[in-house]
Amino acid sequence: MARTILVVDDEAGYRDLLSYELSGEGFSVLTASCGAEAMAALDGGGVSLVITDMRMPGLDGLDVVRAVTERRPDIPVVLMTGYAVEARAEEACGRACALLRKPFDMDELKAAVKAHSR
């Protein structure tokens, strides 16, 4: 399953972390540091899952989710958020596949990815 996951986060640490862990699981990982890059990456094609942070400057996670559901409804999205209660996040999660609260266990992440990459 050489799947491509797009990771969108303005925090370099998270980009690295996720790349490291997910590559270890056998996925190929694309990263974007903001919403615009994420769009470009999407348009590039080949993405089978998107993991995006909520809070980013410019186009935020919700915008990403919206864009994905518009352009590529077949691609599942996982939202990450550092905020405990995020009404918008929960609303967005209605469309996305999963919501992860930071900080989360890697096991949690991997479980979510496995669940939504079918």
Binding site: G13, Y14, L17, Y83, K102, P103, M106
Partner: peptide, 20 residues
């Protein structure tokens, strides 16, 4: 808390990953 969350998460993530 919010500010720390992210670095913490990364640290923890990597740490867990390495430990594994």
């Amino acid at each position: 808390a919010h500010e720390i969350n992210n670095p913490l998460g990364i640290i923890l993530g990597f740490a867990q990953g390495l430990v594994k």
